[in-house]
């Protein structure tokens, strides 16, 4: 009996590991195939995370939010980098103006800041450590908010959030649809964030603002310029 156990135990472990790996592979294949497919039954409303990237990125994002239907994309969670003091103010101004127009309600919008993976000019080596902190913070955000939609447009702030959301998606805890809209500043080449999300197939829809970029990245969509 003991001999049987000694001989059989590693085999059992191997079999177990093999089953787990296969299950994960099947699940990931399903998630990748299902991502990017439109909804068959429209949801009534979707909780929406809007990632504000600072400066021109924020301006582009808020112009999109401005034309979204506020009843359907509700509640809205605005996230900016912890070092960015301007973006959330601008989002608050937008939400205030919606309130005045009678299009919003006070509970529909929340504003929060997240640690950033990499500051402008920070070295790529030290950004490994800061990225880990940013991912932990992002997991906490996704756990707390459990958004059905994430709309983002770079720079790096959105990467940990998209990765965390994808982990939740793969684990079957929350299905988030991720929309990435590459900045208008990218004419010939994708940004690092855009390239990462595109290559890893993490987005449901990937939008670019120049036709020459669309022809280079065939899975992307071009629907004109935002700005």
């Amino acid at each position: 009996m003991e001999e049987y156990l000694e001989a059989g135990f590693p085999k059992l472990v191997l079999l177990f590991v093999a089953i787990i790996i296969s299950l994960i592979a099947i699940r990931l294949t399903y998630v990748f195939l299902r991502s990017g497919k439109p909804f068959v039954v429209p949801p009534e409303r979707v909780s929406t995370m809007i990632v504000l990237g600072s400066g021109g990125h924020t301006a582009e994002m808020l112009s999109i939010v401005n034309v979204l239907n506020k009843e359907r994309f509700s509640p809205r969670f605005y996230v900016s980098a912890a070092t960015d003091n301007m973006s959330l103010q601008k989002a608050q101004v937008l939400e205030q103006s919606l309130l005045h127009q009678g299009k919003g309600n006070a509970e529909a919008a929340q504003f929060m800041q997240i640690y950033r993976s990499r500051e402008v000019g920070q070295s790529y080596i030290t950004s490994v450590g800061t990225s880990l902190i940013a991912i932990a913070h992002a997991i906490w955000f996704i756990l707390k908010i459990r958004p059905q939609v994430i709309i983002c447009n770079g720079p790096g702030t959105c990467i940990p959030l998209c990765v965390a959301a994808f982990m939740f998606k793969a684990a079957g805890l929350r299905w988030s649809s991720i929309f990435y809209i590459e900045s208008i500043a990218r004419v010939r080449k994708l940004s690092l964030s855009g390239l990462l999300l595109y290559k890893l197939h993490l987005t449901d829809q990937f939008v670019v603002q120049w036709p020459q970029l669309q022809s280079k990245y065939p899975r992307s969509q071009y629907v004109g310029r935002i700005m």
């Binding site: 439109p38 429209p42 582009e60 999109i64 359907r72 929309f179 939008v207 004109g224 935002i226």
Partner: peptide, 17 residues
């Protein structure tokens, strides 16, 4: 000037809105 309505339409169509 650019227009963000086409992007909003793309997102809407995805959800069937």
């Amino acid at each position: 000037p650019g227009d963000s309505v086409p992007v909003a339409k793309l997102i809407n169509r995805f959800f069937g809105f």
